[in-house]
Simulated scan of single mutants.
Amino acid sequence: MFPKINDHVYIQIASEIEKENKQEYKSRIAEMEDDSILMEVPIPVEGGKMKKLYMGDELSMYFVNDEGVKHYFNTYVLGYKSDNIQLVRIRRPELDSITKVQRRNFLRVIAELEVAVRTEKNVRFIALTEDVGGGGISFYVDPTYKLNEEELLHCWVLLPYKNGTIEHVPIETEIVRMKKLETGRNLVMLKFRNIADIERQKLIRYCFERQFDFRNR
């Protein structure tokens, strides 16, 4: 079942920062469209200022039906609509993806992609990603490149689509965590600090193509 107009929904936003990842927000369904849902701008459950959402943000959501059962689904932000109040447009989930079991697997896919990296000190190198998503990426790097948490990196991710086209997506990122691997390499986990909406949509498109491939294996 889908949420209904005027139903309240509860939201968590994908983030590499644990504190942000656990923050819960609430909103209200305003309109239902064929392929999307419009909801009010969310606010923290505990109260506070409205939370600005960005195109491509990945959301884990639930609503409660008339019997008091929670129904969970994952989605992402498509854009906005200005009515009497501003509304947020999110992707309408497939009916069979709505579950009574909570799942926090945001739209991030395993993918070995080439990424060109430039540090703030103008050090440049090429790395391979472990995964990519609408809100962040992870890549492997040789430990000879000295990187630190909270450091800003400029990245260009190469995206090969199924139709044969290739896109280079520029992103300003921030290192949120690093992990030393048994192979000797470092796994660098990044969140997006600055990315154009059109570039984020290119990443989302690539992720959905990858998800479709996985489902059909």
Score class of each variant (00 low, 15 high):
211 Q>E: 10
113 L>F: 12
208 F>C: 00
88 V>K: 02
164 G>I: 08
30 A>E: 10
27 S>C: 03
88 V>H: 04
154 H>S: 13
60 S>W: 04
140 Y>V: 01
165 T>I: 13
19 K>M: 07
49 K>N: 10
26 K>P: 04
110 I>N: 13
36 S>L: 03
3 P>V: 12
103 R>L: 11
83 D>L: 09
150 E>Q: 12
159 L>M: 09
14 A>P: 04
97 S>Y: 06
67 E>L: 14
189 M>G: 02
179 K>Q: 10
184 G>Q: 00
174 E>G: 07
160 P>Q: 04
115 V>W: 13
187 L>F: 00
131 D>C: 10
87 L>C: 05
92 R>T: 08
98 I>D: 08
126 I>F: 11
212 F>E: 10
17 I>N: 11
61 M>R: 05
207 C>E: 00
12 Q>N: 15
113 L>Y: 02
154 H>C: 05
135 G>Q: 10
161 Y>K: 07
130 E>T: 11
6 N>Y: 08
184 G>S: 00
88 V>S: 03
84 N>L: 11
172 E>L: 15
203 L>P: 09
95 L>W: 06
34 D>H: 12
85 I>C: 06
85 I>H: 12
35 D>R: 07
1 M>Q: 13
174 E>S: 08
96 D>T: 11
21 N>V: 10
70 K>A: 15
38 L>E: 09
142 D>F: 00
8 H>T: 08
145 Y>D: 00
163 N>W: 06
121 K>A: 15
39 M>C: 08
160 P>F: 07
93 P>I: 01
161 Y>S: 06
148 N>Y: 07
198 I>Q: 09
128 L>P: 05
153 L>E: 02
55 M>G: 04
32 M>V: 12
123 V>W: 01
175 I>S: 01
106 F>P: 08
183 T>C: 00
